[in-house]
Design a protein around this nucleic acid. Structure first.
Lengths: 235, 235
DNA sequence: ACCTGAACACCGTTCAAGT
DNA sequence: ACCTGAACACCGTTCAAGT
């Protein structure tokens, strides 16, 4: 069991391992299951990115034949859907936030959302395909409820939610796409200096080199929430 | 030439067509070129989506052998990059907007940006891969310049630009992913009604069925610009 | 119920070659 | 300089079959 973790096992030894366990009937750990498949898919996506997830490689990591997956899953698409949603679970705000502090709650929810996606950079680029897993819906529901409690009128709720959603998704997306490897970053920097004659303003502001993404995210989010709070006060 | 447009030409007739032209040396239209490749790639992407763009099919549309493309282009990736950037050209604000109206200018720029991407829904999902083509940089440059002229301090410029960029990208992205085919929409609606016990707030607000995306986009953008204008007034 | 290997269709790209 | 067909490596998935 401890050896299972070491990762560099040969295919054959995994087979033997499986054979040993197949004598007993406990569903302890080795047998294939949706849970294991999804968890391993997330690992693989973390390690190799979207293009690195191939059914054969996933099966390999699970120590099973490539086609075994298809009993648990219809498609590769479904693997993507499940992996995406599994990464977006929300555990709720910490106790340090008081329950009347709606702004604090919303802030935490959205920062956590962004953080969850950044922990798995592939998740951002997967979102446009099929977006509505249960965890995403829960997050939207909780966001709606919080804003509603905070006094946002039903008529304004959708705009508020979409604005926040758009901002978070866009920010994650942008961060994931600009946060390149160091090599790429160096190349981009070089190229940009050459281009700063053509694009003087963004050259001067160091727009593309400024990597305080977290700070920028919070400040922008503040702007949005200011707008919402003001609307709410006026309404 | 007129027949070229009709689209349903057989492979053989296209070949003959090419043979007829090969007797002359004018580079009138038929010969392969980066421009033609990119334009045709955009057509193909519009018609078949990201997954529909295959090198062989692209070559077919161009009436050339599949491998001919590789003389003009390194990769399929490069085709994507070029197609994406080609779709994001900006022609500037209309004359109806006065040049001192920075808010109007910014508003137009961002609405146009979003509209351009929505005209080619695949563009949103391509953005995260490689984002910095010349047309995107021009748009960022123009946005920076306008905000700068409007009085946004250099120190706040990056936050302002990223906030707006994030919002636009997120909004386009979201819209593209939720604007499903009618079948899917009907299915989603049905499913959502079943789920509205579990997600009562978003069920009540009809969050996922409300399809006034354009209105929501404008209102949210107003919120952001309000925030920016206020910061600017305070600073 | 759960897993498997062989096989198929498909696709990006290399290569050696044509003009 | 520009284009090409044959061929290779790879990948998702079907199928018929095993236990």
């Amino acid at each position: 069991m401890a050896t299972k973790r070491s990762g560099a096992q040969s295919k054959r030894s995994r087979r033997i391992d499986a054979a040993l366990h197949s004598g007993q009937e406990p569903r302890s750990e080795p047998p294939l299951s949706l849970e294991r498949i999804v968890a391993t898919a997330v690992e693989l996506l973390d390690a190799e990115g979207v293009d690195g997830l191939k059914m054969r490689r996933l099966a390999d990591r699970l120590g099973s034949g490539a086609m075994s997956l298809y009993w648990h899953v219809d498609n590769k698409e479904e693997v993507f859907d499940l992996a995406l949603d599994s990464v977006l679970e929300y555990r709720g705000p910490p106790q340090t936030i008081e329950s009347e502090d709606w702004r604090g709650e919303v802030f935490h929810m959205l920062e956590d959302w962004r953080a969850s996606m950044l922990r798995h950079p592939w998740s951002a680029s997967l979102l446009p395909r099929r977006a509505l897993g249960p965890n995403i819906l829960s997050r939207l529901e909780l966001l709606s409820k919080t804003l509603s409690k905070a006094g946002v009128a039903d008529a304004d709720l959708n705009v508020a939610i979409w604005s926040l959603w758009n901002y978070v998704v866009g920010a994650t997306f942008t961060r994931a796409s600009f946060d390149l490897s160091d090599d790429d970053r160096a190349a981009a920097q070089l190229r940009l200096e050459q281009l700063s004659e053509r694009y003087p303003t963004i050259g001067r502001s160091r727009l593309l080199l400024d990597n305080d993404w977290d700070g920028a995210f919070r400040k922008g989010l503040d702007l949005l929430l200011d707008g919402l709070a003001q609307d709410e006060a006026e309404g």
